[in-house]
């Protein structure tokens, strides 16, 4: 009967049972277990002793953590605007139905599908002193070579270059999708008024995709705050911790020094930051839906 379809039944929940089992055991439980671990002094294989917020105190008074937070914030502040600006530029330049534009769009997005290990390997071939692509170029130009990955002022920057190369495709595609949504009668009206390209860009195009720009920026903030593989593989945080981000600090603390309490405490701090950004994202998207 059609009515029985609407009726609430326990047996219907059997359909969600498989997923909920995995969800509860591999996401919910470790989430709370991680919080519990952050309040304990423990090693990775057993013994634990409740010590309250002491791990958090240790994390916040660790200058290495302070440096990692600083590095991450700088990294986010530079990489996110770069990604947004380049993505926006590419979407405006390639928002056409021609074959050439389509090909270039495909090219700019292609690096996104590579794994972090391949991206870093490629960029190591570019950055290594002596044999790297940039070293060759610098030699040709008669410039002095730079140890991109081994110099304090350059290491985080080099990680950033590889990151932008890897992540650029997504902002571009999100902007392109937004540009497609702009009603074309807006442009028809502008054409009747003989509006200049610049006026069209600043009065029609950019205001129409404003919420997407904000959305892309937040998505990128959340992603770049979690910088890990690129830094770990290209510089391992060095030299002198100058390119160590928060996640690498968590990794080193938990899985190299096996200080689980401190590692989980640091990860809860990062979780809070990301949760905050995610809440802003939710707020922005739901407002976008109303408009």
């Amino acid at each position: 009967m059609a009515e029985s379809y609407r009726r609430s039944r326990w047996s219907n929940a059997l359909f969600i049972l498989p997923y909920m089992t995995v969800f509860l055991s591999l996401l919910v439980f470790p989430l709370f277990w991680g919080m519990w671990l952050s309040l304990n002094k423990s090693d990775l294989f057993g013994g634990a002793r409740f010590i309250g917020l002491k791990n958090y105190y240790r994390v916040f008074s660790d200058p290495v953590f302070g440096q990692a937070v600083w590095n991450t914030v700088i990294f986010v502040l530079v990489s996110v605007p770069t990604l947004v600006a380049l993505g926006l530029f590419l979407s405006l330049a390639l928002n056409k139905t021609t074959r050439a534009s389509s090909l270039l769009r495909g090219l700019f997005f292609s690096s996104t599908v590579l794994s972090v290990t391949i991206v870093t390997l490629i960029w190591r071939f570019v950055f290594i002193p002596g044999d790297g692509l940039l070293a060759l170029l610098f030699d040709k130009m008669g410039w002095e070579q730079i140890g991109f990955l081994s110099t304090e002022g350059w290491s985080l920057f080099s990680v950033g270059v590889a990151t932008v190369w890897w992540c650029l495709g997504l902002p571009m595609m999100l902007f392109l999708a937004a540009l497609q949504q702009i009603p074309s009668d807006l442009y028809e009206a502008a054409a009747l008024d003989n509006a200049s390209r610049w006026r069209v860009l600043t009065r029609i195009t950019l205001p129409s995709i404003k919420s997407t720009i904000v959305l892309v920026a937040i998505v990128q903030i959340v992603m770049q705050f979690q910088l890990f593989g690129q830094a770990q593989l290209m510089t391992n945080g060095g030299p002198a911790g100058s390119s160590r981000p928060i996640v690498l600090y968590i990794f080193d603390t938990s899985f190299i020094r096996w200080d689980v309490g401190m590692g989980t405490a640091a990860s809860e701090v990062l979780f809070l930051i990301i949760l905050l950004a995610a809440m802003v994202q939710y707020w922005v998207t739901s407002r976008k839906g109303e408009a």
Binding site: L27, L31, F228, F271
Partner: peptide
């Protein structure tokens, strides 16, 4: 329809906001 369907769904949606590093050590 099943008991607590909406509540459970909201809890699952919260799972979207959990980043890997918050669970990976545990």
């Amino acid at each position: 329809e099943f008991p607590f369907r909406k509540t459970i769904f909201v809890i699952v949606l919260f799972g979207l906001a959990v980043p890997e590093q918050a669970v990976i050590i545990a």
